[in-house]
């Protein structure tokens, strides 16, 4: 058909039913493609259920007060709990948060509130993306060389502190990114209003801008903490492991993630069971944190 000659009416009215014809090639293709997409979506959801079911069944049946308050047994013995590992995970994650949140929020404030769009802010944002992509095991290697082998903390090698610092390196990019992006969403008028009534830059940022961006920042920070709590690779040769209760910040400390790793590959049934139990506690904590983050961001929207 030439584009130059206008089509005749009959060309329009030839096979002209406007009814949906499932036998058409295009409609059949549509159906098949729909089915494939649905199948893929089902495939994507299945692993979550399989993992959750096993963790809940295998780990949940061991749940008891003893599990949460006792020390793990020596290899080959039965019973015991993961109390020291739960405490250790909390301690190490807390150290990481105490470092990464102030540094990250400060860095995010600089990028959004002070930085001109020059080479420095471009470099920091690029560096932040690169840092976010650095494999977590490399963070462990880095802190191992920097802190563990140099023994800079009171001549101690492996320590809870080293583990916490390694985790903070991992958290930092998340906190900076969410702070920066959260602050960008704060309308410019709020800043102008604050300057207009005579507030200084410092007061504007701490009293007006940061509180206005609280929701996205808090969401990102909670997600960052949840991710750090489950990390293992940076801890295996920084915080190491300990079968005892935590002995201060400058000694090796047990964490749930390292306990799972160590106990999963042990040939003892009791240890394997504790690994499942620790997975249960860890997964509940992390999924709880994720739902909390989601709740924070939904609560402010409505």
């Amino acid at each position: 058909m030439s584009y130059l000659t206008p089509p005749t009416t009959s060309q329009f009215t030839q096979r002209l039913t406007l009814h949906y014809d499932p036998a058409l090639k295009r409609n059949r293709f549509n159906q098949i493609a729909n089915a494939i997409a649905a199948f893929f979506a089902a495939l994507a959801v299945v692993p979550l259920f399989l993992v959750l079911i096993y963790v809940l069944i295998q780990g949940g049946r061991l749940l008891s007060l003893r599990l949460l308050t006792e020390l793990p047994p020596a290899p080959g013995l039965e019973g015991g709990g993961i109390g020291n590992a739960i405490l250790g995970t909390i301690v190490v994650t807390l150290i990481a948060s105490l470092i990464a949140i102030p540094v990250g929020v400060g860095g995010g404030v600089y990028l959004s509130e002070y930085a001109q769009d020059g080479w420095f802010s471009k470099f920091v944002r690029f560096g932040n993306d690169v840092l976010a992509g650095v494999p977590s095991i490399i963070c462990g290697v880095f802190i191992y060389s920097l802190i563990v082998t140099t023994r800079i903390f009171f001549d101690q090698s492996f320590s809870a502190m080293a583990g916490g610092i390694a985790l903070s390196v991992l958290m930092l990019p998340t906190v900076i990114k969410t702070t920066y992006e959260g602050l960008l969403l704060v309308p410019q008028e709020m800043r102008m209003g604050a300057y207009g009534v005579g507030a200084s830059r410092f007061v504007t940022i701490t009293q007006i801008t940061l509180p206005a961006a609280f929701t996205p920042i808090a969401t990102g920070v909670v997600l960052g903490i949840a991710r750090a709590a489950g990390e293992t690779a940076p801890l295996i040769f920084t915080a190491l492991f300990s079968p005892f209760w935590p002995e201060g910040l400058f000694n090796p400390i047990a964490t749930m993630s390292v306990l799972i790793f160590n106990f999963a590959i042990m040939p003892y049934e009791a240890q394997n069971e504790l690994a499942w139990a620790a997975s249960f506690v860890l997964v509940i904590m992390i999924l709880g944190a994720n739902l909390l983050a989601r709740w924070i961001s939904n609560a402010s929207r409505s």
Partner: peptide, 11 residues
């Protein structure tokens, strides 16, 4: 699913 720690997936 993304939130489940890698060590738990390993187990």
């Amino acid at each position: 699913l993304a939130a489940i720690p890698s060590v738990v997936l390993g187990l």
